[in-house]
């Protein structure tokens, strides 16, 4: 057969492309559910890490479902707009979609996770934004007063190794958030990440990672935007009883006293 003729070349490449596409489509679709499970499992372990429930070697899914009080969605006005099904979490791609909605000024459905940790209700809120090279995201866990931070966890897609990537890997960076407050004079201001070191005793600020200026600024802005989106919900939760937003968590009622 003449393997150099035009017809042969065209037919050959068509068949090749079809075979390759079929093999890949089959592989991708048969492995898809497993891959999604992995993404979900990772998200769950991040969430429970922020809540302070994660221990080395624990089964993240079990810990998550055992300690979860409830998981639901709220809109920008702080009204609940839907529940998350058993074991369902909003993964990074969902957060990206919501972030696009925030930027476009559209209505949002933001996830809220509430855990029972040592008889306290800890609320975990996500955040998502653009870093230097790619997306950065994270979870902020709030104590029952909805003001004091219990823990945080951050992750990123492609920040510079050794610089911006440290937001995910450096324990000191994460740990300095614990005990900080997201509100100042009753307004949600999030936590500022300050280059060259936060002023001593500033309850609303932490130190930035030296050398990682843009990533730090991006994380700072991300926290402000996302916690800003939750501010109505946070305010409602921080109010005395009678509001239905907190549903069955009486812990929220005590927050007024703790705030001042």
């Amino acid at each position: 057969m003449n393997t150099n003729s035009n017809t042969y070349t065209v037919v050959y490449s068509t068949i090749l492309v079809m075979v390759v596409a079929a093999v890949l489509a089959f592989a991708a679709s048969s492995l898809k559910s497993r891959q999604d499970d992995n993404v979900k499992a990772e998200t769950i372990s991040k969430i429970i890490t922020a809540a302070g429930l994660y221990e080395d070697g624990c089964d993240a899914k079990t810990v998550y479902s055992q300690n979860l009080v409830e998981a639901f969605l709220v809109d920008a006005a702080g009204e609940p707009v839907g529940k998350l099904a058993e074991g369902e979490v909003k993964v990074t791609s969902d957060l990206k979609a919501e972030n696009d909605n925030i930027k476009a000024g559209k209505s949002v459905k933001l996830p809220v996770y509430k855990f029972n940790v040592n008889n306290e209700v800890i609320t975990v809120l996500p955040c998502y934004g653009a870093g230097l090279w790619g997306p950065i995201w994270g979870y902020v866990a709030l104590k029952p007063d909805m003001n004091t931070i219990a823990g945080v966890v951050f992750d990123h897609k492609g920040e510079t190794p050794g610089l911006g990537a440290k937001i995910a890997t450096e324990p000191w960076f994460r740990e300095q958030f614990a005990g900080k407050q997201i509100a100042k004079n009753g307004e949600v201001v999030a936590v500022s990440i300050i280059k060259g070191g936060a002023p001593k005793g500033d309850i609303n600020a932490v130190d930035a990672i030296s050398g990682a200026t843009i990533t730090s600024q991006a994380l700072d802005a991300t926290l402000k935007i996302w916690l800003g989106q939750y501010k109505e919900y946070i305010a409602k939760c921080a109010q005395p009883a009678g509001e239905d937003c907190c549903e069955d968590e009486c812990e929220c009622e005590t927050s007024e006293n703790q705030e001042d």
């Binding site: 393997t3 050959y12 390759v20 093999v23 592989a27 492995l31 992995n38």
Partner: peptide
């Protein structure tokens, strides 16, 4: 069977297919 003119592309397609399979399996 490979037509000589598109040899490199055919090879790249085969290699890329293997790499995608490995990548998918690792992700799973």
């Amino acid at each position: 069977t490979i037509p000589n003119r598109i040899r490199i592309i055919v090879q790249l397609v085969v290699v890329a297919m293997m790499v995608i399979l490995v990548d998918q399996v690792l992700k799973a």
